[in-house]
Design a protein around this nucleic acid. Structure first.
Lengths: 144, 144
DNA sequence: CTGGATCCGACATGATACTG
DNA sequence: CAGTATCATGTCGGATCCAG
């Protein structure tokens, strides 16, 4: 491998109890961003991961189908992205032993729950894109 | 500037009607990931943004305080991160005209709503870290 | 068709020195 | 104290060639 294969040298756990409380110290979860949060965040933040997840959330797709639907992705990145998602248990890869190789990809139940969570972030973006754009315009204008 | 100052050459809008529907095509929002979604995602996915946001969600902090609390961040990245967050309207920067320069940083209301949204992703991570870790272990074990 | 292996450029981050 | 400027480096993503 070469890139996002970070071997995660080790991570503490045990504090993994449900954290629904609002008034918790940021250190409770953010300090250890090298452990789990960042791992997932890096996966989600990838240039194509989100798109692949969204596509697979609709229906299972073949390698070529994904390649065609995304259009703009290199087979290299599609492969890398799928491998990462598969390794994290978010995507299931099924190889059909037929003459022309056929491989299907689909979201696992875990992947589907992540997609649901991610949608919240996307929704936030859609709801506040105007405000962010305005803030940027104001900032850029003032910085002259 | 040098890095994440991506000038966003332009982005379509007008389709910006409220998108609260659940059964929408992934293309409805993911294809244009160069426009808004990715912009925000890149900000959130940054190595330090999340940590800074979490810290500021508790209380306003000075530059040095952030630097000391985070411990591991370079003054350079702290500056860059804060500038990005400020440009996006997530953080407010206040300069006090005193003898030894004093600058305060605090989340804007927009930044606070983003923090809330982000927490969902963090929560997901905490709730499923075990499954992800297991999936990785299984994947790595099988790949030999 | 479904990838694996390489080379390479772009950008993000870190380290260090300097300044108002 | 709160940065800015510069240089070094690691990683990500793209292009290309090769293979089962």
């Amino acid at each position: 491998m070469e890139e996002g294969t970070s071997k995660s040298p080790g991570y503490r756990e045990g504090t993994g109890s449900s954290v629904d409380d609002e008034d918790l110290d940021p250190f409770q979860w953010d300090t250890r961003e090298d452990c789990e949060v960042r791992q997932i965040l890096d996966r989600v933040a990838g240039k194509w991961s989100l798109l692949v997840i969204a596509l697979l959330d609709r229906r299972r797709l073949r390698f070529t189908e994904l390649r065609r639907e995304i259009d703009g992705i290199s087979q290299r990145m599609l492969t890398v992205t799928l491998r990462q998602l598969e390794r994290d248990g978010l995507v299931r890869r099924t190889v059909h032993p037929v003459v022309p190789p056929r491989v299907d990809y689909e979201l696992t139940s875990l992947g589907r729950t992540l997609h649901t969570t991610i949608r919240a972030l996307v929704t936030w973006t859609e709801e506040h894109q105007t405000e962010v754009a305005a803030a940027r315009a104001a900032y850029d204008a003032a910085e002259r």
